[in-house]
């Protein structure tokens, strides 16, 4: 839709961005790539009176690693484009799960514009399940201060905040681990997700360990803790697989749309889990 009446503000830093947002009376939105918002507006969602553009902010545009308490952490600026994120050596080498997930988002031209921050801030982005499995943390500005929390907690927040950085702590090497991020769309590529499920199996000292997250479509991705708990600390040979997929089906709470019902999505999530389980078992005997 062609709308020219909207006022565009360009903020030089996050404090100014917040100030602008607080000072305008009418509707406003922070915008970076704008790829997701444009789709919503064209679909009839009311165009805001003010766009607060974050493109001029110099910080949060890079990917770097740090040593924090003897472990390596990877920091991804929220304003880094999905394409840049996708091909960055740190992501390719140390967070391949995230790289793979980003590779399934939209198409190359869109990924050149859209940012990782935008993908997360819309709360249904395809990168989120993988990030949840990687136990990602986020740095965000709530208007008063910059805070750090887990992505999982941040997704549950209702209040406005400005996402600044995604922090991934390098996982301990585990010989028998298997991680996966599967997106099932309506088409082979360039499609919204119907079901996205990501997870990581490993053998720890006290038995099997599973991290599992699922989203898809309008469903806000989240960890499936109850399913995880059924698996964790069990002996691999005696794991009650049917009970687990049964729990997954109960716990995963997808939102239906005109194309796929909840039941279908649940079934697919469970099937995908089974396939990955088998893959893991095959890989590690």
């Amino acid at each position: 839709m062609r709308t020219l009446e909207t006022k565009v503000w360009s903020a030089k830093d996050i404090y100014e961005a917040w100030e602008i947002k607080a000072s305008v009376k009418d509707s406003s939105v922070f915008i970076m790539g704008g790829t997701f918002l444009q789709t919503k507006w064209e679909n009839g969602v009311q165009y805001p009176d003010h766009l607060i553009h974050l493109g001029e902010i110099k910080e949060y545009k890079q990917i770097y690693s740090l040593q924090e308490h003897q472990v390596k952490t990877i920091h991804i600026g929220a304003f880094v484009s999905l394409a840049e994120c996708h091909k960055h050596p740190l992501i390719q080498n140390d967070c391949s799960l995230l790289a793979d997930s980003i590779g399934t988002i939209a198409a190359p031209a869109v990924r050149n514009l859209g940012t990782i921050g935008g993908n997360i801030a819309n709360r249904i982005g395809d990168s989120i399940p993988a990030l949840l499995v990687l136990d990602a943390e986020v740095l965000y500005f709530d208007g008063n201060e910059i805070k750090r929390d887990s992505l999982e907690n941040w997704l549950k927040q209702k209040e406005d905040s400005l996402l600044l950085e995604i922090i991934i702590t390098e996982q301990k090497a585990s010989v028998q681990s298997h991680q996966f991020a599967n997106k099932v769309g309506r088409r082979e590529a360039f499609t919204a997700s119907v079901v996205t499920i990501a997870g990581r199996f490993s053998i720890e000292e006290n038995g099997v360990s599973l991290i599992l997250a699922a989203g898809g479509g309008e469903t806000i991705p989240r960890r499936l803790r109850r399913t995880e708990n059924l698996v964790n600390h069990q002996d691999i040979e005696t794991i009650p697989l049917q009970q687990i997929t049964g729990e997954l089906i109960k716990e995963y709470n997808p939102i239906a749309d005109a194309f796929f019902a909840e039941d279908y999505r649940r079934k697919v999530a469970a099937n995908l889990f089974m396939v990955e389980w088998e893959k893991w078992r095959e890989k590690h005997g």
Partner: peptide, 16 residues
């Protein structure tokens, strides 16, 4: 119409 544009009305892409 539920499918109002190419984000919901999907035609085959090159990978299909």
């Amino acid at each position: 119409y539920v499918t109002n544009n190419f984000d919901s009305y999907l035609i085959p892409g090159i990978q299909d």
